[in-house]
Design a protein around this nucleic acid. Structure first.
Lengths: 227, 227
DNA sequence: ATATATATTATTATATACAAAAAACATTAT
DNA sequence: ATAATGTTTTTTGTATATAATAATATATAT
C-alpha cells in the first residue's frame, strides 16, 4: 500500500507566505538584502509574482525572528547587526554550546559518535583542500549532530537562531572569512570528551571553541579596521 | 518647547495586529486559551471587532514565538506544553540564568544593587503576608534587574521568552503553585555574590536557584500525579 | 448497518479594494 | 534662498472578495 507515490508528493504543499518567508530570510542571511535596506510590500510582491498579503505575513515572522525591524505606518527594514549585537550573541552561544555538549556527553549514542567522526573526517579533507564552502558545511553539520544529541528541542531551536546571526554577521563584515586548522583540534577535543562521556570536560572545550571563534572574529574586525 | 504635550500622545499608535497579538499572547500565557484549543480566524475577528487580516498577522507572530501551532490549510491551535518541553526550557534557563548573573556580577551598578535589595525587601514582605501575586511580581522584577545588568540584549530577549513558557506551564499544570521561603535565601545568596563581584559564585547560586525551581515543579507534578 | 460516493458547508489562502497616514513635491510668502 | 503651507503621490493598514481545500452531512450501494 505504502509505495513511493503515497510517501512522496503528500505534504509538499507550502503556503506562499512560507515560501516568501524562506526566500527573504535566506536573502537576509546571505547578505543579498543588506542591513537597513527598505522592504517594500508592493515591490517584493510583484518581484515574486504574488499579492501583498503573503509578503506581509512573511514580514511579520521575520520581524519576530529579529531579522527585520518595523516602524508602524512607516515600513520594514532589514535589521542592523552591530558588533555589540554579535558579541552578545556569541556570549550566549558560548554558554549554550557548553550546555549542549555537556548534555550530549551523557546522551549521545554510538551511532551519533560515528556520524560525528565521519563528518569531522570530511571536514578535515575540505580544510586540507582549502575548500571553504565544504568546510563550512561540515562545520555546521558537526554542531548539528551535537545539538541533536543534547535531546533538548528548545536548545536546538535557540542555538539555530544564534548561529543564523553569526552566519549573517560574517557575510556582512567578514568577507575574507576562512576556517583555520586550529578548529580541527578543537573538534577533536570535543569528540574525545563526548566519547569519554565527560560532561564538564565537554562543556569546557565547547565553550573554549566558541570563545576562540569570538577572538578570531575580533581579530579579523581589527585587521579590517572595523573596530 | 518640550512640555508634556510633546512628550505624551505622540507614539501611542499601535497597529491592530499588535493589539490582537498581545491580547492573544496574554490569553495563552494566562491559560484563558488552553493548549490544543482551535484558533479560528473569523471567530476571533468578530469577537474583537476587527477583520481577519490583523488576526492572521497576529497568529503568524504567535506561531514563530512557539505559542501557536499551524497546519497549513487546516488552522491554528494553541501550542501544547508538555512536561518534557518545560524540562527542556528549565535546562536552558538554568544555564542562561547562570550566565546572566555571572555577567551581572561584573557589570551591575551600585544603583542597580540598591534596586535589587529594595525589590527583595518587598518580596520578603509579600511572602510573609502570604501575598502570592505580590511575591510573584517581585520575583519577576528581581530577575529583570539581573538580566538588565547583564548588559546583553540577546540574553534578555531569550530568557524573557523562556520565563514566559515557565509561567504558562505553571498556569496549566500547577494551579496550587506557591512561593516558598527558601527562595528568600537563594535570592540573598545571589545578591551577596553580585555585591562581591564574584562571577563564578554568582553563576553557581543562580543556576542552583533554577535547579531548585525545577525540583519544586517536579515534586508538585508528582503530588498532583501528573508525572 | 457499514462503507463509499457525492453534495454542502466551513475555513483557510490569496488577491484586491479602500482608507488613512507618510513622503514627496510644488507653491507661496517672507 | 528659505521656511511654511498646501497638494499630489506613495505606502501602509485594514476590510472585503474570490478561490481552493478540508470538514461535514447526505445519499446510495452493498
Amino acid at each position: 500500500m505504502a509505495g513511493k507515490l503515497s510517501k512522496i508528493n503528500f505534504n509538499d504543499y507550502m503556503p506562499l507566505r512560507e515560501v516568501i518567508f524562506n526566500t527573504l530570510r535566506q536573502a537576509i542571511i546571505l547578505g543579498e538584502l543588506k542591513p537597513g535596506e527598505r522592504l517594500m510590500e508592493v515591490h517584493l510582491a510583484e518581484k515574486m509574482g504574488v499579492s501583498r498579503t503573503p509578503v506581509r505575513e512573511a514580514i511579520r515572522k521575520l520581524e519576530l525572528e529579529g531579522l527585520v525591524n518595523m516602524v508602524p505606518r512607516k515600513g520594514a527594514h532589514v535589521a542592523d547587526l552591530s558588533v555589540k549585537d554579535i558579541m552578545d550573541v556569541l556570549e550566549v552561544r558560548a554558554c549554550l554550546d557548553g550546555l549542549a555538549t555537556s548534555l550530549a556527553a551523557n546522551r549521545i549514542t554510538q551511532d551519533e559518535i560515528k556520524e560525528l567522526k565521519n563528518i569531522h573526517t570530511q571536514f578535515i579533507n575540505y580544510i586540507e583542500k582549502d575548500n571553504l564552502q565544504g568546510s563550512i558545511k561540515k562545520d555546521v553539520e558537526f554542531h548539528d549532530v551535537i545539538y541533536r544529541s543534547s535531546r533538548n528541542e528548545r536548545l536546538i531551536q535557540i542555538t539555530s537562531n544564534l548561529r543564523e546571526q553569526v552566519q549573517r554577521f560574517r557575510v556582512i563584515y567578514l568577507k575574507d572569512y576562512s576556517n583555520t586548522r586550529d578548529i580541527i583540534n578543537e573538534h577533536n577535543e570535543i569528540i574525545d570528551a563526548l566519547i569519554a562521556k565527560d560532561p564538564s570536560k565537554a562543556q569546557e572545550v565547547a565553550q573554549k571553541h566558541i570563545k576562540k571563534q569570538e577572538e578570531t572574529i575580533i581579530k579579523s574586525l581589527k585587521e579590517n579596521r572595523i573596530v
